[in-house]
Design a binder for these strands. Structure first.
Length: 360
DNA sequence: TAATCGTGGTC
DNA sequence: TGACCAAGATT
């Protein structure tokens, strides 16, 4: 069988890739140029934001966070709700909660300095196997072997690994570790990610442009684009709810803060019934209204896709007197909801309600 | 090991 | 339009 990647010395592969990186490295806001080393605070912040999130989405949030909180001490001193508001729209909100916890630990217990090795980093909240290895490599130039979606794909193709993910993960990590050079391990990690993002892309990889063309077993065997194989995914169910759009005579809208854990934990929401697969008839739904009022069903529905279910929402609206008080309420000015820090699902509900005449 | 946990872009 | 994918962590 063809075994190009194993025949070539791993040092030859990493040398080729580093030479490619010197010419083709992407310029990104959190990144030092090839041969340089970025601020550990910047590396950590960007790596957490980049978990399952694209560079284009992250960039404006990264700039905003650094402007608000230039150092880890500033972030540690910020109120949690302010951090959650700044994170609104980025998704996976447990990252924001852990980010804040981590900042406080680094600021208060570690003198503002991030641990320089994987084991130390791994103890901090929100830093898992990938992120610990990435920070150790990129911020401290330690010979660590981060394995993200890009590197999984590059390594699976390079060595023609046929075992499906996620089972093959440890095997791929071991193959990646063999490639990590002692010189410039941080640049090597970033080069592998750049290669996956720009050349060794998921569909129709650009093998003709690849610096590892000659070493790649997957290409030699003719099936690089089919790798890595993945276990089939489960179907997503639909969950239905009724949302209550409560407009007070002073021009504010009733919101609530969700419990600190779980879905959208710690974020603001438009009050809803429970989210069920069966849905709600009028009588059952209105029993869950946050205040007694003359409720009015708005036309249309709001649809939002979460990772593991589809969310389908009907909105009911009511106007209530200015003196209306509700326990645990957060009344937000209807003209300033853009600054309120609503997660996207809730922002869609608000936009729909205003568009359908629920603007007060 | 398998579920849970967001969102936006692409083809 | 729907499935896939993106610098994964936590329980």
């Amino acid at each position: 069988m063809a075994d190009n990647a194993s025949e070539q010395t791993t040092s030859a592969i990493s040398r080729h890739l580093l030479a490619w990186y010197d010419r083709h490295a992407r310029s990104l806001p959190w990144r030092a140029p090839p041969g340089g080393r970025a601020d550990p605070y910047h590396v950590w912040l960007s790596e957490v934001m980049l978990q399952q999130t694209t560079t284009a989405t992250v960039a404006p949030y990264f700039h905003d966070f650094l402007q608000r909180w230039p150092s880890v001490h500033d972030l540690a001193a910020a109120p949690r709700e302010e951090v959650m508001t700044a994170w609104a729209g980025l998704g996976y909100y447990a990252r924001a909660r852990n980010l804040h916890k981590c900042a406080r630990m680094v600021s208060h217990d570690l003198g503002g300095r991030f641990p320089e090795d994987e084991a130390g980093l791994r103890k901090l909240p929100g830093i898992g196997p990938y992120t610990a290895a990435a920070i150790a490599a990129i911020a401290f130039d330690r010979p660590a072997a981060p394995l993200d979606g890009n590197i999984e794909r590059v390594v699976a193709r390079l060595f023609a690994v046929e075992d499906p993910l996620p089972g093959a993960k440890e095997s791929l990590r071991g193959l990646m570790a063999r490639l990590v050079p002692t010189e410039r391990p941080g640049d090597f990690a970033q080069a592998m990610m750049d290669l996956g993002a720009t050349v060794c892309v998921p569909k129709t990889p650009k093998c003709m442009l690849c610096p590892l063309h000659d070493a790649c077993d997957g290409r030699a065997l003719g099936g690089a684009g089919e790798l890595p194989r993945k276990a089939p995914k489960k179907a997503r169910p639909t969950r239905r709810a009724v949302a209550f759009w409560t407009v007070r005579a002073d021009g504010s809208v009733l919101l609530r803060r969700r419990p600190p854990e779980g879905l959208l934990g710690g974020m603001l929401e438009v009050p809803t019934t429970a989210w069920t697969e069966d849905g709600w008839d009028e009588t059952a739904a209105l029993r869950h209204a946050p205040v007694p009022a003359s409720w009015n069903e708005l036309p249309g529905q709001v649809r939002h896709g979460f990772t593991h279910f589809e969310f389908l929402v009907t909105v009911w609206a009511a106007q209530v007197p200015a003196e209306t008080a509700v326990a645990e309420a957060v009344w937000a000015g209807i003209d300033r909801l853009g600054d309120a820090g609503l997660p996207t699902a809730m922002r869609k509900i608000a936009e729909h309600a205003i568009r359908q005449g629920g603007g007060g």
